[in-house]
């Protein structure tokens, strides 16, 4: 019963947030920022604890798993494009994952993060279920990693389009790969606003980033 209520309430607030964001396109009103804030306000008013809410909304977070499986569909449908651009995709995403891990590591050192925070933040640029897995493998805290993945998504969804504009990125492949690499699923849903090609490349970037980060993660655990 409680699952039904929390699922419906979350869904309605999500729809409302999307509507508001469509009217007022300001970064602070991004659905991934606005919806959680509205929900936190709502559960505080109604005296529901965060853990009760998390239990009740399990069905929705569970959906990330079949959604990951679903990405086989765009890969299958775009096999010809993948074959054509496999070189560009592989090079860009290998560079992207390396830059993500190195820049995160150096910046973490700069602000003196503790070691368990550092290993938990390293896989932040990949999609949640896979980031949690990598985090577990390299000795991080999966729940903390989820938080960093979410912040990355929000940051990427907001700043991504601006970065692409500043660097005057024109091609759909560069736009898509950057969004999927930098901000996983959130970037991919942003890419959908640009166009079909962008969203295909973004989904591909997300999957490749996850795979390549898994490789880095395995290497890290083997050699450290």
């Amino acid at each position: 019963m409680i699952i039904v209520v929390f699922t419906i309430v979350t869904y309605l607030i999500y729809l409302l947030s999307k509507k508001i964001y469509k009217k007022i396109i300001i970064a602070a009103f991004h659905p991934l920022l606005l919806a959680p804030i509205l929900l936190i306000v709502l559960i505080t008013i109604t005296h529901v604890s965060a853990n009760q809410y998390l239990q009740g909304s399990k069905l929705l977070s569970h959906m990330l798993a079949p959604a990951t499986v679903a990405f086989a569909v765009p890969i299958y449908k775009n096999l010809a494009i993948i074959k054509k651009y496999i070189g560009t995709i592989a090079v860009s995403i290998t560079v992207g994952t390396l830059v993500a891990m190195i820049s995160t590591f150096l910046l973490s050192k700069l602000i003196h993060l503790s070691d368990d925070f550092i290993v938990s933040i390293l896989p932040r640029s990949i999609t949640t279920p896979i980031a949690m897995e990598v985090s577990k493998e390299i000795g991080g805290l999966p729940a903390l990693t989820t938080v960093f993945v979410i912040i990355t998504g929000i940051a990427g969804g907001i700043i991504g389009p601006k970065v692409l504009k500043w660097l005057s990125i024109k091609t759909p492949i560069a736009k898509g790969l950057a969004l999927g690499m930098g901000a996983h699923g959130v970037g991919t849903s942003k890419a959908l606003e640009y166009g079909k090609q962008e969203s295909v490349f973004s989904s591909l970037a997300m999957i490749f980033a996850a795979l390549i980060t898994l490789v880095w993660g395995t290497l890290l655990t083997t050699f450290i």
Partner: peptide, 22 residues
């Protein structure tokens, strides 16, 4: 598959609310 991928943001929202635990 199309629906799941289009509504991907929705599935992140519970974890985003979970940030209050940190």
């Amino acid at each position: 598959a199309k629906w799941l991928m289009a509504e991907l943001l929705l599935f992140f929202i519970p974890s985003a609310v979970g940030i209050v635990n940190y």
